[in-house]
């Protein structure tokens, strides 16, 4: 297979991944790495590098749309970015000392966990009071618009959320994914932030977190121009198409189907990882 055929095939694969990732909110990165490694036999380190670049592209591209809704909590995002970027730099360093098959196994595990999280019910209860002094010190409490007017919310368990975010950053740097599902988990379940705020604030953080490990990836040779070319442009195009299709139609069914597809891919990654096929 020549470079040009390879590029075209990966472009269309990435287009589909970006489209599905944006429709379901799971992100395209999770499909890119298995596609490149299992289907095209690309070294997993190149796949991780290309996926990380695609993550930066989609999160930055989507930010403008999210901003219009006006519910990103910038202070909360900035505060937690200290945790995610520290984790991401650590993760990128650990990645180069971790055997590729181990990385594939961790990837498979995280994939299953994220699919499970995406099927879980979201937190829509809003805290009106909090005992967390830190949430006042760091001005993390906010308001968000609803049809009935601005609603205030309070943040709890700031320390627990901070360290979960560091873990999410570490995985992002180790595996080249946005780990958006984990970020939302930290904000939803631990800090009790309303779902709409946590989703948009998570997107705000994903690009910055990924950028924090990108420098190390580049230097280690993970970012190959020949692979990043079709992956970045494909995923971006797919995400753009997805956002056009994304009306208020029910995506829960699609989300379920996609979650099962992801579990199947995860099992394949685990199987190959345990049999040292990477």
């Amino acid at each position: 297979m020549s470079i040009i055929t390879f590029t075209i095939l990966i472009f269309f694969g990435s287009l589909l991944a970006g489209f599905l990732g944006s429709l379901t909110g799971l992100g395209g990165g999770f499909v890119i790495i298995p596609m490149l490694t299992l289907l095209f036999g690309v070294d997993i380190r190149y796949a991780i590098g290309a996926s990380l670049v695609a993550v930066i592209a989609t999160s930055s591209g989507a930010a403008a749309a999210y901003v219009k809704e006006g519910i990103t909590n910038i202070r909360l995002g900035m505060f937690l970015e200290i945790a995610t970027t520290t984790g991401a730099v650590l993760g990128a360093y650990i990645a180069s000392y971790t055997p590729v098959n181990t990385i594939a196994i961790i990837f498979g595990g995280i994939l299953i966990f994220s699919a499970y999280l995406s099927l879980k019910k979201k937190n829509e209860n809003i805290l009106q009071t909090t005992k967390s002094k830190l949430s006042y010190t760091f001005k993390l409490n906010g308001t968000y618009p609803t049809p009935e007017g601005e609603i205030g919310y309070k943040v709890t368990n700031v320390i627990g959320g901070f360290f979960t975010m560091m873990g999410a950053g570490l995985l992002s740097g180790l595996l080249g994914v946005g780990s958006g599902a984990l970020k939302v988990l930290a904000m939803d379940n631990i800090m009790r932030i309303p779902f709409k705020v946590s989703t948009t604030t998570s997107n705000f953080m994903i690009g910055v977190t990924a950028a924090a490990s990108a420098g190390i990836y580049l230097y280690r040779g993970y970012i190959d121009p020949g692979i990043c070319l079709p992956v970045t442009l494909g995923v971006l195009g797919g995400a753009l198409l997805g956002s056009k299709f994304l009306t208020n139609a029910k995506t829960s069914r699609l989300r379920q189907i996609f979650a099962f597809v992801i579990i199947a891919i995860a099992l394949e990654m685990l199987y190959n990882g345990f049999n040292k096929k990477f």
């Binding site: 930055s60 970015e81 950028a211």
Partner: peptide, 12 residues
């Protein structure tokens, strides 16, 4: 790709 990496940094 470097321009892309710098984009979120510009946001900071």
């Amino acid at each position: 790709i470097i321009v892309l990496i710098l984009t979120p940094i510009a946001r900071i």
